[in-house]
Amino acid sequence: MRKFLMFLILVPIIEICVVLLSGKLIGAFPTLLLIVVTGMLGVYLAKTKGIKAFQQLKIAIERGQAPGDAIIDGVLTFVGSVLLVLPGFISDILGILLVMPATRKLFKPMIYYWLRKKMKKGQIILMQK
């Protein structure tokens, strides 16, 4: 819990510092323009990619396949889109990495590792019919 609290405190401070530095380097208007454009891109991607991920999930379920990859892709894409909507450049960089399929693949092993760890501790239980 302490790590999460430190994360909630440090990330906004770092984001503000990076935005202020960017404003000093490239100017206030270009900085604000970048923040607005990435926010709009995030909203657009959340809508389009979210619908696509839901359709892939539906297709996997209809075929009787485990929708593991479809769910993880959908969640990572959604999280990336939300990060793009948030103001700040660090969140934008992470959001772009999560939205792009080529770089999203780099995050999947970490998610699977985290899920396996939670399952071993009994914090996540899978039920099959």
Score class of each variant (00 low, 15 high):
A53K: 05
A53D: 10
F54W: 14
F54A: 15
Q55Y: 09
Q55A: 08
Q56G: 07
Q56M: 11
Q56L: 10
L57R: 09
L57F: 13
L57D: 08
K58A: 13
K58R: 13
I59L: 11
I59S: 10
A60K: 01
A60Q: 02
A60N: 04
A60W: 01
A60Y: 02
I61R: 12
E62G: 07
E62N: 10
E62S: 09
R63L: 12
R63I: 08
G64W: 04
G64Y: 05
G64D: 05
Q65V: 12
A66I: 13
P67Q: 12
G68E: 12
G68F: 10
G68S: 14
G68L: 11
D69Y: 05
D69G: 11
D69T: 10
I71N: 08
I72E: 04
D73Q: 08
D73W: 02
D73I: 06
G74Q: 02
V75P: 03
L76S: 04
L76Q: 04
T77G: 09
F78N: 01
F78P: 01
V79I: 14
V79W: 01
V79F: 03
V79E: 02
S81D: 06
L83D: 00
L84E: 00
L84N: 01
L84D: 00
L84W: 00
L84K: 01
V85N: 01
V85Y: 00
L86F: 14
L86N: 10
P87I: 09
P87H: 06
P87D: 10
G88F: 01
G88N: 02
G88I: 01
F89V: 06
S91W: 04
S91I: 05
S91N: 14
D92Y: 00
D92A: 04
I93L: 15
G95D: 00
L97N: 09
L98M: 14
L98P: 04
L98G: 02
V99F: 00
V99I: 06
V99Q: 00
M100E: 10
M100Y: 13
M100W: 13
M100C: 14
P101A: 04
A102Q: 15
A102S: 15
T103H: 12
T103K: 14
R104T: 05
R104L: 07
K105M: 13
K105P: 06
L106K: 14
L106T: 14
L106Y: 15
F107Q: 11
F107T: 10
K108D: 06
